[in-house]
Design a protein around this nucleic acid. Structure first.
Lengths: 234, 234
DNA sequence: TAGATTGTTAATCGATTAACAATC
DNA sequence: TAGATTGTTAATCGATTAACAATC
């Protein structure tokens, strides 16, 4: 049965891990990896929560969705919990990723050390600008040559790529998205400020730099208003 | 205690606009600006919701927190609603922004056209690398010279900067944060994969590229598992 | 055992949704 | 008026929180 026929109740509910929890797991994972690197053997929910910026109650609730991996009176084994979170997130196997658009942002993404260390292999860098095609970008210590977008279909055939990153200008994003989806990509990380149209079953996460700044501006404005109000009140 | 993102105590309460709504306002704003540019005079909640990727019920609920700016039987005046959302978000006045760290990511941010068009003025670019200091980066059509981080205090004195962007490597992020806060910054957009410690009253939003990919990987894994399950069932 | 800390419960809070009365 | 669409209501859903029994 195609995924489009899977009832929604299967996805969010029914023993699955809640969305809000999934969104916090990478933060816990990062904190735990840092602790493991410092040789810390066990951690309490209070400590891990503190270094993740959440309450300990929330942390324990989140971890309880993965299983019972702690020891009462002791805490959590750091290495073991790293593994369990990695497994839940799907980080225990490698993911092949292609990046389309190799401007400043695409370059920054390709060179980001956090990708390789979490099992994301950048197997292709694509652009349409003749100035960029043929250039070599260092990804995880190895040079990767920027290819023309026209060669994407071939690359997709030989490697099981299911994740694509769009770092193109706004105008190109939708057609790049269509190309990716047509060649088997089912998860897209989109940095272009566009709402992409995708078929059922394809997930898109959009990261918009201007949106983030605007939300900050809102809170900044609110603080200024509160300050004024407080000043006039007393 | 540094809650990971914007502290809750500041928000939500006291007749304010709910968090979830604030987070969607930039999307509505963008869609409306595009409509205004195409000369569309009015829009229904159904249409605006469609082009924002939300349900019309949610859209109307969201807009109702700003006020009653629609006309029953007609819809919303596009220009007017653009203005009202901009006002709610604090986009009706200019915000001065400094960016610290002018690597690929900092460059991408500085050159991002969406900033200037929404009233964000990049008044300073800072770095500590002698290779970058003195370089000129084109921001909103005008060249801006990268300055050494040591000169940040002076720049902060002359211009009312309350928003800072951290695009440095992980190791430098906390000390840069301290410097920004010491000189009056009260809102920080953080691209370094660290949980910043900030005093009460300072808001931080963290954007982590690896986190986004990991969340995608989770959903990708879930889809693969569902596909397997469906295959073995039928 | 005594102290510590988990995993779970139940209450609360906030967000979403469908439906529809209000009204242009 | 008749048709269209908003703004609001009330029900539901999901997330958060504090408290504590279970148990190492």
């Amino acid at each position: 049965m195609p995924l489009s026929q899977v009832p929604k109740s299967h996805i969010g509910a029914r023993g699955g891990i809640p969305d809000a929890t999934v969104n916090r797991l990478p933060t816990y994972h990062r904190a735990l990896v840092a602790m493991a690197a410092r040789g810390i053997p066990t951690v309490s929910s209070e400590e891990l929560a503190e270094s993740s910026g959440v309450s300990s109650a929330k942390l324990r609730k989140d971890l309880s969705f993965l299983g019972s991996y702690g020891t009462r009176g002791v805490g959590y084994d750091v290495e073991f919990l790293v593994y369990q979170i990695a497994r839940a997130l799907g980080l225990t196997h490698e993911w092949s990723v292609v990046i389309v658009g190799v401007g400043n942002l695409g370059n920054a993404l390709a060179g980001y050390p956090g990708f390789a260390s979490r099992g994301f292999n950048v197997v292709g860098l694509f652009d349409t600008s003749s100035a960029r095609v043929g250039e070599s970008v260092v990804v995880a210590g190895c040079p990767v040559v920027v290819q023309h977008l026209d060669t994407l279909p071939e690359v997709m055939k030989s490697s099981g790529v299911s994740i694509g990153v769009i770092a193109t200008p706004e105008a190109a994003a939708q057609s790049v998205c269509n190309l990716l989806v047509a060649h088997g990509v089912t998860s897209i990380l989109n940095f272009a400020p566009v709402l992409l149209e995708v078929p059922e079953g394809v997930d898109v996460r959009r990261v918009d730099l201007a949106t983030e700044l605007q939300i900050l501006a809102f809170h900044e404005q609110r603080k200024a208003q509160n300050a004024l109000r407080a000043a006039s009140a007393g």
